[in-house]
Simulated assay, not measured.
Amino acid sequence: MTESPDEDYRRAAVDLLGAIAYGELSAFERLVEDAKMAPGIEDKIAIGAMATAEFGHLQKLVERLSELGADPAEAMQVFRPSFDSFHAYTAPSDYYEGLIKAYVGDGLAADFYREIAAYLDPETREVIISSLEDSGQTAFIVDRVKAGIAEDHRLGGRLALWGRRLMGEALTQAQRVAGDRESLTALLAGGVDRPGLDLAALGRMFTRLTERHAARMAELGLEA
């Protein structure tokens, strides 16, 4: 039996919300672990606040999933293997790498999800956009990374390489999330009643993602 366009759309919305929700959950768990590497209590408090904000975002996404008639845990579970694999492969080796991952890696993922959210209904789009808002970590991370580089100039080169690696892995992860779920692929392709992304538009989207990544790296004083 062929599903209706409305059901196709609902499935795509649920998949996207599920992906972002699991991303927020894993970000929360990762930040809790990163706080253990923080050099002092002030930094531990700041990282803890970031983790708390991520969990708050998660709750909004869970509520929207329930409103759409989905089981939040089931919607998130399908993305667990790919996200867990990504985080295991990009586990930071020290505090500074953890900060870069939180700023650059999570920032790139947020940019990608904002791009896709443009194809959703206003209510769902607003929930997603609000869940991807900066949790106040930008200024803190930029300050800490720049201070670390000022103390040890060799750190800058290592973190620049780490940022490039995160960029490649995060783009691959984003493409995998969109490509592995037929509903998301269909959402991006559009339909007779809504616009979609052709190859040229898709290329422009990934160009925008790359440019925003370069801007973040520049803000940290690192080469993209």
Results as ranks from 00 to 15, higher is better:
194 R>C: 03
55 F>M: 15
18 G>A: 11
84 D>P: 04
61 L>C: 05
92 P>V: 03
222 L>M: 15
49 A>I: 08
127 V>S: 04
57 H>L: 03
88 A>M: 08
152 D>S: 03
3 E>W: 01
184 L>M: 09
139 A>M: 02
222 L>H: 00
169 E>C: 12
177 V>N: 10
55 F>W: 09
193 D>E: 15
132 L>S: 01
176 R>S: 14
112 F>Y: 12
1 M>G: 15
169 E>P: 00
135 S>W: 00
82 S>A: 01
173 Q>N: 11
223 E>A: 12
121 D>F: 02
94 D>V: 01
196 G>I: 14
33 E>K: 03
12 A>M: 02
95 Y>C: 07
137 Q>L: 12
107 G>T: 07
16 L>P: 03
141 I>T: 13
213 H>P: 10
71 D>C: 06
208 R>S: 07
80 R>P: 00
75 A>R: 05
181 R>S: 12
194 R>K: 15
137 Q>W: 07
71 D>A: 03
222 L>C: 12
149 I>K: 08
151 E>F: 04
159 L>D: 07
173 Q>K: 13
196 G>P: 08
165 R>G: 08
152 D>Q: 01
157 G>V: 00
221 G>Q: 06
125 R>F: 10
200 A>D: 15
149 I>D: 14
123 E>I: 10
119 Y>E: 09
190 G>C: 10
93 S>L: 03
147 A>P: 03
55 F>P: 01
94 D>G: 02
97 E>F: 05
212 R>C: 03
197 L>H: 14
90 T>S: 13
28 F>I: 04
7 E>P: 04
102 A>K: 02
105 G>D: 06
173 Q>H: 14
151 E>C: 08
198 D>I: 12
149 I>G: 10
199 L>T: 14
210 T>V: 11
122 P>N: 09
208 R>I: 08
4 S>H: 06
175 Q>W: 11
26 S>T: 10
176 R>C: 11
69 G>F: 01
205 M>R: 11
124 T>M: 09
106 D>W: 04
189 A>T: 09
86 F>A: 05
74 E>K: 14
144 R>Q: 09
20 I>D: 06
212 R>I: 02
182 E>Q: 14
196 G>C: 14
198 D>Y: 12
42 E>G: 10
133 E>V: 05
65 L>P: 11
214 A>H: 14
69 G>R: 00
221 G>M: 13
21 A>C: 03
23 G>T: 05
6 D>F: 08
42 E>W: 00
135 S>V: 13
123 E>R: 10
103 Y>G: 05
166 L>M: 12
89 Y>L: 02
59 Q>E: 04
61 L>G: 07
209 L>E: 07
35 A>R: 08
